[in-house]
Write a protein that binds this DNA or RNA. Structure first.
Lengths: 112, 112
DNA sequence: TTTATATGCATAAGAAAATTATGTATTTTT
DNA sequence: AAAAATACATAATTTTCTTATGCATATAAA
């Protein structure tokens, strides 16, 4: 994924966010999109991606639609209604996390 | 630590950062400081904290100084020279992570 | 033409970093 | 007297990743 361990826990949020924007995507497409968006900084490995997709599906946040293109199989994922709600709350969670961590590493000097 | 899994991987950075500011701290003090800084959002558990401190020490980033206060033992930790360097690079890593993740979840709309 | 790379899925073994549950001990508050 | 706070620690388990492997087709390069 990246040499940084900080990305741990963020993969499912990334997936949910991309599917909010693009409506339906398949696994390989997600890896390429993330690589592009991050200018190569973040490379999602298959070993991380596919289990994450399967879990989101099992949790009822994604639904699948198979499609054969150029004689190769693609599994298109899209958000369910529950997935849409989940995306909103997970993004809020991420914003809160970023604020919190910045409050620690970049604390406002006390005015006393 | 928090109900959010996003903090996974950030504990060692938090410790290094606090010790850059406060020079020397003991474990329990770190948990209280973090709770205060985050207004209760982040509560570091002992099961996470102590192994993290031990690892940072084993890696040569922290050194220990025992002190008995009110008949209770405290292990004060402070940064080594290597720990100081590590703090700088880990903070940079965190800033990069935040930029990258924001580039994904908050993408600039293309101007086309 | 054969070989490597890209596309596309998947899982298994192992590592890393947490959680949860204990355990010990002293001090302070209720 | 009992509960909560202070102060350390570790063990079992869970989660989420990495690394390695496997299968299959299409395209680019040697």
């Amino acid at each position: 994924m990246s040499n940084s361990k900080l990305y741990k826990g963020s993969l499912s949020i990334i997936i949910l966010k991309l599917l909010t924007e693009t409506h339906k995507m398949y696994g390989y497409e997600i890896t390429q999109k993330v690589k592009e968006l991050t200018q190569g900084e973040l490379n999602i490995t298959e070993g991380a991606l596919y289990p994450a997709l399967h879990k989101l599906e099992a949790d009822g946040f994604l639904e699948v639609e198979m499609q054969r293109v150029d004689n190769r199989l693609r599994k298109y994922y899209k958000l369910t209604q529950a997935g849409n709600k989940e995306e909103v709350s997970r993004i809020e969670e991420l914003e809160r996390f970023i604020e919190t961590i910045q409050g620690i590493v970049n604390p406002k000097p006390s005015l006393g």
